[in-house]
Design a protein around this nucleic acid. Structure first.
Lengths: 346, 346
DNA sequence: ATCAGCATTCTTGAGTGCCGAGTGCTAAGC
DNA sequence: GCTTAGCACTCGGCACTCAAGAATGCTGAT
């Protein structure tokens, strides 16, 4: 990567043209093809010169000596950057989304449909992750003995997420009820973490009084009944079938599909790249840093939030060769929709 | 299909050998190969004769004039039939299953892991569906206002399945609480269906008294809060990536993956073929009747039950060319495990 | 600077010929 | 009468060659 010939106007136009025709055709683009298609009226030879410069700058690659040029990851980054997000979502996409989102019953369902819709629109893999664990405010808990040693814990958060979990413990139903009542009366609206801290504090301070009760609660915590975010994660993946069209190498295809089935990895991926704090759509080109098997893939993601609370994230994963503009607007639109649908009356 | 040469001992042995070597190699099996492998000491010529008979009986096919023979669906059916289910599960499989099933927290999770484990063991697609809606006994309900017009309904069944749903209605919290209390006190242990019938009956009879309360409950029913089984279905599919190895035709591969993503179809498939009443493992060869895109696939499934209650079903879906014995024992083992794990203390 | 032309490189697809595996049939052997 | 060996025939697949097409880099002219 020698001193970049600081990309001027002509270079930018040509690079953009290369990226776009490569996205469209999938084949290495040569100087002649470009000269023919490009209205700029430049001759192939000139274009070749520019191409050579761009190759030096590390923006283009040649698969073989006598083949056309292919954009590098860097070129895509550049391309996406100068792709001002001014595009509006198309009416077709909008109606696809409206249709699919009809009659949503809960967050999980929204996420599931989202993954599906994103895959439809982008013709790639749609991903939606519902996280939002301990930061959510508690609304209600309920415990119930199931069998011999088993207790069912149900936790409802204020944002309407329900989570259940079977624990193994032997507290009698009476104590479970007492614990539930205690929690519901004292800690409604608290976050799980804050609540735990408070319980621990009280155990320290007022040991004598609440003793049994607080210990029950602490025991429930320890079993994960009220617990930390990771167990609440639900991952929805739609359109994995679309990878078949894009990936020629069978082994790699299989590897990719396998990776997608490991939900944990997908969560980790979104967690790493989708910035919860920021509302913006994030485009990450080249996922090999995070997950080796996803080399050459691109992630276009955004956080899903209701008000200020982050409920999860959504994304499209696809090959570098995808319709960025289109996908970005779709992701952005659904991310906004999420807030609208779940915040107020639909 | 002329008069079947009623399959004798020799025919059976040869057919079995053909099926097994075809499963092993994936290539059309010819008379010579078979003669070499088969200890029976028959000459290729003899085998050719038998093969011709089996072809006439519609049990074998030739892809091309001078290729070997391939078993037809009918042949697989015959093969599976005479495959007495005497095989024990292998220790390796057993330990894979034990490892994966460790620390199960609820039915959904069991199903998810099951689909994964089945895919691992069978090297095919593992499927698990949690159904079991209205037939389950009610344990507890809870309603909570979420926002403007929205109410969150949480239903816990006696078998430990939790279900939540956001409804659009405008009952005030006080009435919701009253309805919940009423239901929890009077109908714990009832099935959803029986409960609804009773509510309707009372509305008729004792109109005056409970009026408002009963009407709230009925309204909740109408919104599906306490409702019919279909919305409770959760479908888990594992190992879809395994299809890549088995299916050469890319288009068909894509079609298959797409079909698997349509959860409804999968539910319908299991519903059609896995007999809830019967405990046995069911092997269905040739799924094209139910779902055209699944032509040539095989389903090996069993119901998942806790005691007498059917909680769902589990299955392996794969190409006709699979290890039947192995898969059948695995499916059967996990089906039994389901009862054990969820019924009593683990 | 820009562009035309030329020699060069490399991929791709078509065409060819050959080998191996399998079949069906007929005739000989137990 | 069942079993087997032998023979002629049919295909699919592989290796190989060859020509066409596309793109490149360079050089020299405008």
């Amino acid at each position: 990567m020698p001193g970049a010939p600081h990309i001027g106007d002509r270079e930018r136009v040509i690079l953009t043209a290369i990226v776009e025709t490569f996205i469209a055709t999938g084949e290495p683009v040569g100087s002649r093809t470009l000269a023919r298609a490009n209205a700029e009226g430049l001759s192939p030879a000139t274009i070749r010169n520019v191409m050579a410069d761009l190759s030096d700058a590390g923006l283009l690659e040649q698969p073989h000596t006598s083949a056309g040029r292919i954009p590098t990851a860097e070129a895509y980054r550049y391309y996406v950057e100068q792709l001002s997000g001014k595009a509006q979502i198309s009416p077709q996409d909008q109606s696809i989304i409206q249709d699919s989102m009809h009659g949503i019953t809960n967050v999980q369902e929204f996420m599931e449909r989202t993954s599906h819709v994103l895959s439809l629109i982008s013709k790639n893999v749609g991903v939606a992750v519902a996280t939002g664990g301990s930061r959510n405010a508690l609304e209600h808990v309920y415990f119930s003995r199931l069998g011999d040693q088993k207790v069912l814990a149900v936790v409802v958060t204020r944002s309407g997420v329900v989570r259940d979990r079977v624990l193994r413990m032997d507290l009698p139903q009476s104590e479970l009820d007492a614990a539930a009542r205690f929690i519901n009366e004292n800690f409604r609206g608290w976050t799980m973490d804050a609540m735990r801290a408070e319980v621990l504090r009280r155990i320290e301070q007022e040991r004598s009084e609440y003793d049994r009760l607080l210990n029950s609660v602490e025991q429930l915590y320890r079993q994960g009944a009220l617990g930390s975010e990771d167990s609440l994660q639900a991952v929805f993946i739609g359109g994995a079938a679309n990878l078949v069209a894009g990936e020629k190498d069978r082994e790699r295809l299989q590897e990719l599909l396998q990776t997608l089935e490991e939900k944990q990895k997908v969560v980790q991926l979104l967690g790493a790249y989708v910035d919860a704090k920021q509302e913006a759509v994030r485009v990450v080109i080249g996922l090999d840093d995070a997950i080796p098997s996803m080399r050459n893939l691109v992630l276009i993601g955004a956080p899903a939030r209701v008000g200020d609370e982050v409920m999860g994230s959504l994304a499209v994963i696809g090959p570098t060769r995808m319709d960025y503009q289109h996908t970005i607007t779709a992701v952005s639109y659904i991310a906004r929709l999420f807030d609208q649908v779940l915040n107020e009356s639909e």
